[in-house]
């Protein structure tokens, strides 16, 4: 029984960590993979999502609806940003990095000015369940479930919908997509909005486990970046999952062996090592393997 509790405890932590990384990085990696922009304001969009959730909740909106509000709100903010600022910085990786960082500063400082440094708290729903002598929070499992659902949703969106087809065509070759009559500007705008909406939803979900302040985003941003960077831009979804699985593994083991801080450092170190081995990220490596497998199974065109 105790062994079971121990194993369950590790598994619980591991999937909690995976869920955390997937949720905080999903929006970021979509924008990076589809548009080649690393959105440094991602954490602040999560912060906006958290505030929207908190205010809606206190206004009497049920928590799940409040989280959806957060997604819609952050998505709209994202689309406005795309129209006003981001679209001038496509294909300029470094400049887009800097300009979105400026936006992040404006958001965190703006919220600080409006709402002050005081923090908000939301109750964590669903209580807990006991295993052996330990109690585990149910909400963490809900978060992991949400992470899975979001990833599945993103995959379905890009695989089955018209928007998904257009987005993939645009990513493949913007000029060609344009020539085929796809409104690439709108695709970019929607993709950016979608990425921001995912950030808002993540922020809304985390709002129930963390304190909400204008600097809410700062806690998530570095880990989200690390997840994205080692995931790579070649295939957003596989990259996201692979890197979350890998990093969460490192984190779970090291946190249990040492402490939170060493766990944090070890994730950075692991990210560093993975990048040295696979400079373009895990997804690029997986894509190339897949390609090789596909090609190998086909007869060569010239025997």
């Amino acid at each position: 029984m105790d062994t079971f509790a121990l194993i369950f405890g590790y598994a619980y932590q591991y999937f909690d960590n995976v869920g955390f990384l997937v949720l905080s990085a999903s929006g970021l990696i979509i924008i990076f993979g589809m548009m080649g922009v690393i959105n440094m304001a991602h954490g602040e969009l999560m912060m906006i999502g958290a505030y929207i959730t908190a205010f809606s909740y206190y206004a009497g909106v049920p928590a799940p609806i409040a989280v959806i509000f957060a997604g819609v709100g952050a998505g709209l903010v994202g689309m406005v940003l795309e129209r006003l600022v981001i679209r001038y910085f496509y294909k300029q990786l470094l400049s887009s990095l800097v300009v979105t960082w400026g936006l992040s500063l404006m958001f965190s400082q703006g919220f600080l000015l409006i709402f002050g440094p005081s923090i908000l708290n939301l109750p964590t729903p669903f209580g807990g369940f006991p295993i052996s002598e330990q109690t585990f929070g149910s909400y963490r499992l809900v978060l992991f479930g949400c992470a899975l659902a979001l990833v599945a949703g993103i995959w379905a969106l890009f695989t089955f919908t018209r928007f998904g087809t257009q987005a993939r065509a645009t990513m493949e070759d913007p000029a060609m997509a344009d020539a085929l009559g796809i409104n690439t500007r709108q695709v970019y705008s929607l993709t950016f909005g979608l990425g921001c909406a995912l950030g808002g939803i993540a922020g809304g979900l985390f709002a129930m486990t963390a304190t909400i302040s204008p600097f809410f985003g700062v806690n998530y941003t570095p880990l989200a970046f690390i997840t994205v960077v080692i995931g790579g831009g070649a295939n957003a979804i596989t990259g996201l999952i692979a890197s979350a699985l890998a990093l969460a593994g490192v984190q779970t083991v090291v946190v249990n062996a040492f402490n939170q801080y060493v766990g944090y450092i070890s994730m950075m170190a692991a990210a560093f090592l993975i990048l040295l081995a696979l400079p373009r990220g895990i997804s690029d490596y997986l894509e190339r393997r897949k390609l090789r497998a596909v090609r190998a199974s086909r007869p060569s065109p010239h025997g």
Binding site: L93, L97, F225, V229, M268, L275, P279
Partner: peptide, 27 residues
């Protein structure tokens, strides 16, 4: 030496430098 000899992309260098700074600060 690590960043440049691994020929990491510019964006990654930029972000890793920030992360390194934040890690030192956290420590």
């Amino acid at each position: 030496a690590i960043l440049f000899y691994a020929r990491l992309r510019g964006v990654y260098v930029a972000i890793l430098m920030l992360v390194i700074s934040l890690v030192i600060g956290t420590f």
